[in-house]
């Protein structure tokens, strides 16, 4: 439909886009999704391994958090921290958290924020420098640095048969972390501590763009396989493998609670022993029955809440920064000149 001058109306353009989107999403969920997934990835009913939830030993989880406190045009100030929480006998056994660490981003050559933090954590210079181009990514790398260090401390704390859960993947996003992840995996292996990384949301696809996890869930449902289950995946059947040089995990899909529709991509150190995978998923499922996040490992929720830098904490840092600048003879106008911009002004309207 067109307006009198032959142009489509605003509403028509919006509806056309919406319709296109729905069609694209529908094409990702064909009626025969389950069978196509089974055929494409070579999955049989026996590929799904059902497990029994158990709570034994200690399950520890590690997570980190980062937040940009203020931004000027040329650099930013970020806050990062990481935490570890351990659970045994149905309750939290320990909770450890780093202080809130502050860093400048975008001035790595001058300030060495990343290099110094890395040095503090691992006693060595990072093999790769941090790029100044993307402050958000830089903050995430700083967070990962703390997170890996906390994971190492947690691994040292656990004993044989315990499980260490990372939030994310057994794959690094910055080259300097690769030796750290290897060190973590070796530490776990040496101490016979199980290690797993759980991804809340994955970009993995198959068959030219079909999302992986929904397909695995659909196939399990069509085969009448109730959770908890784990499905080891042959990654060669997936569409892409990003940063494969920094990848150390074997990929599986796991559903952890019979009453939850959720499933997750998990990674265990490769090469994966099937009994080891089943044991890990049993331990994860044993802690995935919390009513708030049924189907998600509760230790990960707990550590996420422990590490999370909330808006009030960011505001506190901002206030402290202003006070610190004031103490150093830099008044509020200097703060505004450096970090004030019209984004803040616009938010008020």
């Amino acid at each position: 439909m067109t307006a009198g001058n032959g142009r489509r109306t605003d509403r028509d353009e919006y509806r056309r886009d919406l319709s296109t989107l729905v069609e694209r999403i529908r094409s990702l969920n064909p009626p025969d999704l389950a069978s196509r997934f089974a055929a494409h990835c070579g999955i049989l009913a026996g590929s799904y391994q059902q497990v029994t939830p158990v709570q034994e030993g200690t399950v520890a989880a590690v997570d980190g958090s980062n937040a940009v406190v203020v931004e000027s045009g040329s650099f930013s100030i970020a806050a990062v921290r990481a935490a570890a929480c351990g659970f045994s006998d149905g309750a939290r056994a320990f909770r450890s958290v780093t202080p809130l660490r502050l860093a400048t981003l975008g001035r790595e050559a001058q300030d060495r924020s990343f290099a110094d933090l890395y040095q503090e954590c691992f006693g060595a210079e990072p093999e790769t420098r941090l790029s100044d181009e993307d402050p958000d990514r830089a903050a995430a790398v700083l967070r990962d640095t703390l997170e890996y260090w906390v994971a190492l401390q947690a691994a040292e704390r656990l004993s044989a048969g315990n499980l260490l859960v990372l939030d994310g993947a057994l794959r690094v996003s910055h080259a300097s972390h690769d030796p750290v992840l290897v060190r973590l995996m070796k530490t776990c292996a040496k101490r016979r501590v199980h290690l797993v990384a759980v991804t809340k949301r994955t970009a993995a696809t198959w068959g030219g763009g079909f999302p992986l996890v929904p397909a695995a869930v659909a196939l399990a449902a069509s085969l009448s396989i109730p959770p908890p289950w784990v499905l080891p995946m042959d990654e060669s059947r997936l569409d892409t493998t990003r940063f494969s040089q920094w990848k150390h995990g074997a990929l599986c899909i796991a559903a952890l609670h019979p009453r939850s529709p959720l499933a997750f991509k998990i990674e265990v150190p490769a090469p994966a022993d099937q009994a080891e995978v089943r044991r890990i998923v049993s331990l994860l499922a044993g802690w995935s029955d919390d009513g708030r996040v049924t189907g998600y490992p509760y230790p990960l929720l707990d550590v996420h809440r422990t590490a999370r830098i909330r808006a009030d904490a960011v505001q506190q840092v901002k206030n402290d920064l202003m006070a610190g600048m004031g103490g150093a003879g830099l008044d509020l106008s200097r703060f505004r000149n450096l970090f004030g911009d019209y984004h803040g002004e616009l938010e008020r309207y």
């Binding site: 149905g90 309750a91 939290r92 009453r259 939850s260 919390d290 009513g291 708030r292 049924t294």
Partner: peptide, 18 residues
């Protein structure tokens, strides 16, 4: 302290930790 006001009345809420 939960922002979700309905945290205690969703389905399958028989088990809570901490």
């Amino acid at each position: 302290n939960f922002e979700d006001e309905k945290w205690d009345r969703r389905p399958h809420t028989e088990q809570f930790y901490g």
